[in-house]
């Protein structure tokens, strides 16, 4: 009889890879159901057989309480913002121009979309190219690869305020772009670069080697293999990373305050100052004048980010299912 730790978590223990825990396939669940009954029986036997002291009960209660507290915190945070904000969402919050009476978030929302598109236009080609190099072109033990990895890891850990300061010194001051859409987008592009690279590389590496060999065997070159075979099949994973990057851009504020500025109007050129929704939210919250509108803005921002992140998770899950079916 196979030993499985807790009766209830039997199906999880049966699965080979812990990384796939979140996405139990229906096929797996069906198979596990039968095994689950047997597991529960042995668990019951085991529980009677082993002596459970007071200490065991405490050690059991602690993680359960902690998980409960974590869940309660998450629930309270999100529900509190929603409950306080939704009643204050009004049509004038979405007026096309901002003034201090309607406190419209519409210009900021449009700016967020523009900023995101522009930042992605820089970050995605570079990040994808870098990932292709790391996953498909670089030879093992290549010095450059080690250096690139260290650099990407470093970039991933740099706080966003440092990015903001760098953007201010380089794009805004030295290149003379002033606080602008372009300066903000370039700063954000550098910020999400490591994320794009690591997720795209992982997605490329998840493509089975047999596909590469098949393509090479049919006479395709490396570039054609990348373009026709690898990129299409790694697409969900790459997209999941890009969407995660969008989530970070939309939520970012510290890197933007001194690179894109806080102008409330819509930009007419790449060199106009703009504020994104997060920066708008920060300005509102620190002014403290329009508490109700701030709650409403928080709801819009929160829902937007949650939607984006959920889309990423769904895509990543689809990828892992696809790879498993191969």
């Amino acid at each position: 009889m196979r030993l499985i730790h807790d009766g209830a978590s039997g199906p999880t223990a049966l699965k080979p890879a812990p990384a796939t825990a979140g996405a139990a396939t229906t096929a797996g669940a069906a198979g596990a159901a039968a095994a689950g009954a047997a597991v529960r029986r042995t668990a019951r036997v085991r529980r009677r057989a082993t002596h459970r002291s007071v200490r065991d009960h405490i050690l059991h209660a602690l993680p359960c309480l902690a998980a409960l507290l974590t869940a309660a915190l998450i629930g309270f945070l999100i529900i509190y913002i929603l409950v306080m904000g939704i009643p204050h969402i009004s049509p004038d919050l979405f007026s096309i121009t901002y003034n201090s009476v309607n406190v419209s978030l519409m210009p900021a929302l449009i700016n967020t979309v523009l900023m995101t598109l522009l930042a992605l236009a820089f970050a995605v080609p570079i990040g994808l190219g870098g990932a292709i190099f790391l996953a498909e072109y670089a030879r093992r033990g290549n010095r450059l690869v080690g250096l690139i990895r260290i650099a990407a890891d470093t970039l991933a850990g740099v706080p966003s305020i440092v990015y903001g300061l760098f953007g201010l010194l380089f794009f805004v001051t030295m290149l003379g772009w002033r606080m602008s859409l372009l300066a903000g987008a370039c700063t954000l592009a550098i910020m999400i670069l490591p994320l794009i690279i690591s997720t795209a590389e992982e997605a490329l590496r998840a493509v089975p080697d047999a596909w590469r060999e098949g393509s090479f065997g049919l006479g395709a070159g490396r570039l054609r293999t990348v373009g026709r075979i690898l990129l299409p099949s790694a697409l969900p994973g790459i997209l999941a990373g890009v969407i995660l990057g969008i989530g970070r851009i939309v939520g970012e504020s510290a890197a933007l305050i001194y690179t894109a500025g806080t102008a409330t109007s819509l930009p007419t050129s790449l060199f106009d100052s703009t504020r994104t929704l997060s920066v708008h939210m920060y300005v509102l919250a620190s002014e403290g004048l329009h508490l109700e509108k701030t709650y409403a803005t928080a709801v819009v921002l929160l829902l937007l980010v949650l939607l984006i992140n959920t889309a990423s998770v769904v895509l990543a899950r689809r990828l892992s299912r696809k790879v498993r079916n191969v």
């Binding site: 998450i74 945070l77 929160l302």
Partner: peptide, 29 residues
Amino acid sequence: RFAKARTKRLLQPAVELLAGIPSVVYGFF
């Protein structure tokens, strides 16, 4: 090590959700 499969399916995405919330929203909260 303790969670039932179903609890895990609920709690894990919730924790991931927490990671995506913008810092201004945390600050406001």
